[in-house]
């Protein structure tokens, strides 16, 4: 297993967001976590990348315990988390954003080559390299955020709601890029509100409801399962 999450519990103050999530990813897989708003999807991701300290449970990456490690140490192991809302550095240029994606020693040497790959993957960014990231459109910012994640040369790429608020044509371009990244052997953990998008892309899926995994299995099966839609609609 590349990533193992066991019986994860996490909360924001009094709000219990995740109550016993377990999941596992093999190297090279593309896995989606779907579920309604507030089901605990983003919280689970934040625990994996270290932004949020879990209350209990274990997270292991390549056999190493991640619990309690700072996010920048977790990134150094090869986990790139592209957060919800893209979170590009708005007053840095596109080039500077990408450059910082390869800030860690693990990625620094390959930086020019990786940047070239990112610009081939998302050609729109090439015309914008000198522009402040905050002036990009939502879709361009999403591509930049993914590109910045890729600059880390990650083993695991975590994507939180990459389609959120994007025009359909941008969603298509973004997902084309993600599929291309996956093809090069990067394991992908994807959180999406958009059920079809998520499950059509992934090999396997987990359905979260009120902080718990209620269903899991091959993505194709989940797409057919009426319980998925029901859980998604909160019924």
């Amino acid at each position: 297993m590349l990533l193992e999450v066991e019986d994860l519990h996490a909360s924001y103050g009094a709000v219990r967001a995740v109550q016993g999530v377990s999941l596992a990813l093999s190297p090279g897989e593309a896995v989606s976590i779907v579920g309604a708003n507030g089901a605990g999807k983003s919280t689970t991701l934040k625990c994996i990348s270290g932004l949020l300290r879990p209350e209990s449970g274990r997270i292991r990456f390549e056999g190493q315990e991640l619990n309690g490690r700072a996010p920048y140490r977790i990134a150094a192991l090869g986990i790139a988390h592209v957060p919800e809302g893209r979170r590009v550095f708005p007053e840095l240029t596109v080039r500077e954003n990408l450059n910082l994606g390869g800030y860690l020693p693990r990625a620094k040497r390959e930086r020019p080559a990786t940047m070239e790959r990112v610009l081939e993957l998302f050609p729109i960014l090439r015309e914008r390299t000198g522009q402040q990231a905050g002036t990009l459109s939502g879709g361009e910012q999403q591509m930049l955020a993914i590109g910045r994640g890729l600059m880390l040369l990650p083993k695991l790429l975590i994507l939180d709601e990459p389609s959120l608020g994007l025009a359909p044509i941008m969603v298509e371009a973004t997902y084309k890029g993600i599929a291309e990244i996956h093809r090069t052997g990067v394991t992908i953990l994807l959180v999406e509100q958009n059920l079809h998008l998520a499950l059509e892309f992934a090999d396997r899926g987990y359905v979260l409801e009120s902080g718990r995994v209620v269903l899991e299995g091959p993505a194709a099966d989940l797409l057919e399962d009426p319980r998925v839609k029901a859980s998604y609609l909160g019924m």
Binding site: P71, P83, L92, E96, L100
Partner: peptide
Amino acid sequence: QAMRAAAQDRDTAMLVGI
């Protein structure tokens, strides 16, 4: 650049390894 990034968004800066 890392300094400016951390000034703009501390959490995301940590995610890229800063």
